[in-house]
């Protein structure tokens, strides 16, 4: 009887996990026409390439659409402006950006302001010089870090 109960509990747990996994997988595997109006409004810069994105890429973009309404108008404008470039970055670049963003969030206000200034200075460097800096920098993360 005890064994039977244990098996029943295990079965319910496994079924719950299965249902959750299938629902998550299906949520990301949607075509552009299947998106809601609100999602299409946010993800509009990606309309032409949405159906070519892989499910895991769509899932990340849908997460962005989900968080979008929580922002003020200025932040929303920034998201729309940067979304296309973000979708075209490699998984490595995106993962690198996420980790750097976390580090940036932990900085003081002064440090953040200083970094913004530095970024503007860096943008003024000739593209050849920036390309050389990128080429000379070793990769920080391994393939295992990417998703």
């Amino acid at each position: 009887m005890v064994g039977y109960q244990l098996k029943l509990k295990s079965l319910i747990f496994v079924l719950a996990l299965l249902v959750y996994g299938v629902s998550v997988a299906n949520a990301a595997d949607v075509s552009w026409s299947e998106l809601s109006d609100a999602q299409r409004k946010v993800l509009n810069p990606l309309a032409s390439e949405w159906d070519t994105l892989r499910p895991w890429q769509r899932e990340k973009m849908l997460d962005i659409a989900k968080d979008y309404p929580k922002m003020n108008a200025d932040k929303q404008a920034l998201v729309k402006e940067r979304l296309t470039n973000w979708s075209r970055m490699t998984p490595y670049e995106r993962e690198n950006a996420r980790k750097r963003h976390q580090q940036f969030n932990a900085l003081s206000t002064d440090k953040k302001a200083e970094l913004r200034k530095k970024w503007l200075e860096y943008q003024k460097l000739p593209e050849s010089e920036r390309a050389k800096l990128r080429a000379d920098s070793p990769d920080t993360y391994t393939d295992a870090d990417l998703n």
């Binding site: 990340k60 997460d63 962005i64 989900k66 968080d67 979008y68 929580k70 922002m71 932040k75 929303q76 920034l78 998201v79 940067r82 979304l83 470039n85 973000w86 970055m89 670049e93 995106r94 690198n96 950006a97 996420r98 980790k99 750097r100 963003h101 976390q102 940036f104 969030n105 953040k112 970094l115 913004r116 530095k118 970024w119 860096y122 460097l125 920036r130 390309a131 050389k132 800096l133 990128r134 000379d136 920098s137 990769d139 920080t140």
Partner: peptide
């Protein structure tokens, strides 16, 4: 999670290119 989500990264003070650019990190 919200602070670290991709949406908030895109709306950050710096553009995503700044975070992903290895050259910028080296230059800093």
């Amino acid at each position: 999670q919200m602070e670290n989500s991709d949406a908030f990264l895109l709306a950050s003070d710096l553009p995503p290119e700044a975070y992903a650019d290895k050259g910028f990190t080296a230059w800093l």
